[in-house]
């Protein structure tokens, strides 16, 4: 079974992010790292291929400046190869444009399953995987908390607010996985060394031959600071604190 994992390479969350004042988008120059939320998908894919007893995991990414540092982490974990689309014309791409690019890159591999995180840690739109599924003509299942492949069917426990739904669909499909679907392994030293020699196919938009091409049309018109969190209400116990807390929880409709 061949599995593609969409991997986003993002500015290191450990250092404070910066916005480009002219484009009002995140500055993505400098070394990028693998988005931690994609580590779960990579691990899930490696386990599914291991269980299937054959096939390989391919990482697919779109990033500026031919950046491969984050992909190398996934290759060190055990993925066989990677495809990177890097093109100056994609600077500031919105989710739909990125979905078109990734879908075109994924088509080259002809996978049985495509795995992505539910959302990225830097953009948080959470819309890309389903857009990509639509473009690929694949069914999609989101918010998977467990994934199993049974022949030509993928079976997923899909996280909901109340619990989870058991859903399944035929392969090929796109599945988005939540953090905690599996525990990502640490890349071993040998894995890190082996990753240096694994193939990373570097492509531009022209190489993908996308019908109608892609154009970055998104414009960020304004960025404002998020509203500061309001201070909580402190309940001083004068013998009736429990009642006031119950009242408060009832107001919130959580009890």
């Amino acid at each position: 079974m061949n599995v593609v994992v969409c991997v986003k390479q993002i500015p290191d969350p450990a250092s404070p992010g910066k916005l480009d004042p002219s484009t009002k988008t995140l500055v993505r120059e400098g070394k990028l790292v693998v988005d931690d939320s994609d580590m779960y998908g990579i691990e899930m894919a490696l386990q599914l291929v291991g269980t299937a007893g054959g096939g390989e995991v391919t990482l697919v990414s779109m990033a500026p400046n031919n950046e491969t540092a984050g992909l190398r982490t996934g290759l060190a974990m055990g993925a066989a190869k990677a495809i990177l689309v890097s093109d100056d014309s994609l600077k500031g791409a919105d989710a739909l444009t990125t979905a078109k690019v990734l879908a075109a890159a994924i088509k080259r591999v002809n996978p049985d399953l495509v795995i992505a995180a539910t959302e990225s840690t830097d953009g948080y739109t959470g819309t890309l995987p389903v857009q990509m599924a639509e473009l690929l003509g694949f069914p999609s299942i989101t918010f998977a908390k467990s994934v199993q492949v049974d022949g030509t069917t993928v079976k997923v426990d899909r996280q909901t607010e109340a619990g989870y739904d058991e859903v399944e669909c035929p392969l090929p499909a796109v599945v988005t996985v939540t953090a905690g679907v599996v525990e990502p392994r640490y890349p071993s030293f040998k894995g890190i060394m082996a990753a240096k020699g694994k193939p990373v196919e570097q492509l531009t938009v022209a190489d993908l031959g996308i019908d109608g091409g892609v154009a970055v049309t998104q414009e960020v018109t304004d960025v404002v600071a998020a509203e500061a969190r309001k201070a909580g209400e402190i309940v001083t116990d004068e013998g009736d604190a429990h009642e006031r807390i119950v009242q408060f929880l009832e107001q919130l409709k959580v009890i």
Binding site: R72, A76, Y186, I192, K196
Partner: peptide, 16 residues
Amino acid sequence: TDPELADDLVAAVRKY
């Protein structure tokens, strides 16, 4: 040891 590889190994240990 290749310097870039060394950096990657040290980063992996730091994360662990």
